[in-house]
């Protein structure tokens, strides 16, 4: 049976099959985890080429860890988020001397010209990304994992190697900062009409 069709197969079972050399497991795992790794890296770095580099490095580490993976030790997705997050934080710290200004946020490069609503939604997403870039790295990491990736606080705590209370504190401070950064954009981006 092709693994792609086995939607109820857990990531951990797929990884065990991959380590055993099962045909189809590599394709299924890549299809599941490739977008996750790339998506999280892109949200953190806002650069497609860098996000691809990070995702590739994280996936390569996962393939190498597969033969020694112990069942029940960790969720594969949590492990991958952690590796991607750490690689992104390293890059952010290397390349950035200070916080990015919200005014530096680029306009959408290729919006659908005929769909005004979609353009506005895209602009809102871009504004959010710009505001996120202005947060301290750890706050941004916690807010992205919580509000864009939709993870639970305990999962984020495991990824960031901190306690749940610390996660709650980081996300609360991050949200407060975002409110301040985005408030001036509400009228521009149509939120006064919502």
């Amino acid at each position: 049976m092709p693994y792609d069709a086995m939607t109820d197969t857990s990531d951990e079972q797929l990884l065990a099959a991959y380590a055993a050399g099962a045909p189809g497991a590599a394709r299924a795992l890549t299809a599941r985890l490739g977008p996750l790794a790339f998506g999280h890296a892109f949200r953190m770095l806002r650069d497609r080429a860098e996000a691809e580099d990070v995702a590739q490095e994280a996936l390569l580490r996962l393939w190498r860890a597969a033969p020694g993976w112990r069942e029940g030790e960790a969720k594969v997705s949590t492990w991958l988020y952690k590796v991607v997050s750490n690689l992104c934080i390293d890059r952010m710290r290397r390349r950035r001397g200070g916080f990015a200004a919200l005014e530096d946020v680029a306009e959408p490069a290729d919006p659908a010209p005929s769909a005004a609503a979609r353009l506005q939604e895209r602009s809102r997403a871009e504004a959010l990304e710009g505001a996120l870039a202005a947060l301290p790295d750890r706050q941004k990491q916690a807010v992205v994992l919580r509000h864009l990736e939709g993870l639970t606080n305990p999962e984020i705590a495991a990824i960031m190697d901190i306690g749940v209370r610390a996660v709650e504190s980081l996300t609360a401070r991050g949200r407060k900062a975002l409110e301040g950064l985005l408030a001036p954009r509400r009228a521009d981006l149509g939120y006064e009409d919502d």
Partner: peptide, 28 residues
């Protein structure tokens, strides 16, 4: 809006990742 604008990887990237996964996979 941020969740809706989920960044998707390119087909070329996914194909490269699949090749890398196959290359790294232990022998049966």
């Amino acid at each position: 809006a941020g969740r809706e604008a989920a960044p998707l990887p390119s087909g070329e990237f996914m194909a490269r990742m699949e090749a890398l996964a196959l290359e790294s996979q232990p022998a049966p």
